[in-house]
């Protein structure tokens, strides 16, 4: 994951996962002389992100790592709270869709501006298998895009994503954070009930509780099956391999217009960056 890296952007929410990731990456990369920059996306969720940001500022300051903050307000002109208060006929997607798409766009945008060659994402074992199961249940064609390193399609316009925590269960990360004395704020996103994820998360947790080892088996299946699918995809002439530049913003996309611009058009708002 770190081979050849010179500058890593670390996606930082301020929660336990990103705090542990930043702390450990700092420990590992210091002797390797790899530069770290924390990137925090502030979606503008009152009573949630504003409570966590001070923790991110505190840890980055203690570790001497620069913190770059980008907001939805700066990026698309509206906070997530403002988008969710719009008339329902104007916002047809769930909060998690707006949040996920704009956050991904914001991270890529910031990573390019900062000139990083890796983008570290704090996805843990639970995130990986929840995403796997959700994509499977939705019959998503990019089922295997959450790989430990990189994405479904390799392209120079993508900054390589790395997921250093992908084998660690979420509960163990929480335990490590508590034992290390990180002042993690355990607050829940107020929009969490809108998404599909809680249902999948509860199902997997109940199954793990009854049949211990299920989570690791799912991850192993994901990695092994994903490898075979990737090899077959690479050898095929699939048109999905072609990466275009978005006609509106120039970002890489499989279609003509990227998902972020499509959402912005639906909301009838203007991209600022």
């Amino acid at each position: 994951m770190l081979k050849g890296a010179k500058h890593i952007g670390v996606a930082m929410s301020g929660g336990k996962d990103s705090q542990v990731m930043l702390y450990l990456l700092n420990k590992i990369t210091k002797p390797m002389k790899i530069k770290l920059t924390a990137i925090l996306v502030d979606e503008g969720i009152n009573g949630y992100r504003d409570k966590i940001i001070p923790e991110a500022k505190k840890l980055t300051s203690e570790l001497g790592i620069p913190l770059h903050i980008v907001t939805f307000k700066d990026l698309v002109g509206h906070s997530l709270d403002e988008i969710m208060s719009m008339d329902k006929k104007d916002r047809i997607e769930s909060s998690c869709t707006y949040c996920g798409v704009f956050r991904r766009y914001a991270l890529n945008n910031a990573a390019k501006k900062l000139g990083v060659d890796r983008l570290a994402i704090g996805h843990n074992l639970d995130d990986m298998i929840q995403g796997y199961m959700m994509n499977m249940m939705r019959n998503e064609n990019l089922l295997f895009r959450f790989k430990p390193t990189g994405g479904a399609v390799e392209d120079d316009r993508f900054i390589m994503r790395i997921r250093p925590l992908f084998k660690i269960p979420e509960k163990e990360l929480a335990l490590y954070a508590v034992l290390k004395g990180f002042k993690s704020v355990f607050v829940e996103c107020p929009y969490v009930g809108e998404g599909f994820r809680p249902l999948v998360r509860d199902f997997i947790n109940s199954t793990e509780s009854k049949y211990p080892g299920t989570k690791f088996k799912m991850l192993q299946n994901y990695i092994e099956t994903g490898k075979k699918v990737s090899e077959s995809f690479a050898a095929s002439n699939s048109t999905e391999k072609k990466i275009n530049s978005c006609e509106k913003c120039g970002e890489p996309t499989s279609g003509k217009i990227c998902k972020s611009c499509r959402l912005i058009d639906q909301l009838r708002i203007k991209r600022k960056v």
Binding site: G15, K16, Y48, D126, E170, K171, A174, V178, F186, V187, E188, C189, V192, G193, G195, R197, P198, R201, N205
Partner: peptide, 8 residues
């Protein structure tokens, strides 16, 4: 008992 896995 502390709930540590929250949505978000």
């Amino acid at each position: 008992i502390q709930k540590v896995i929250l949505g978000g």
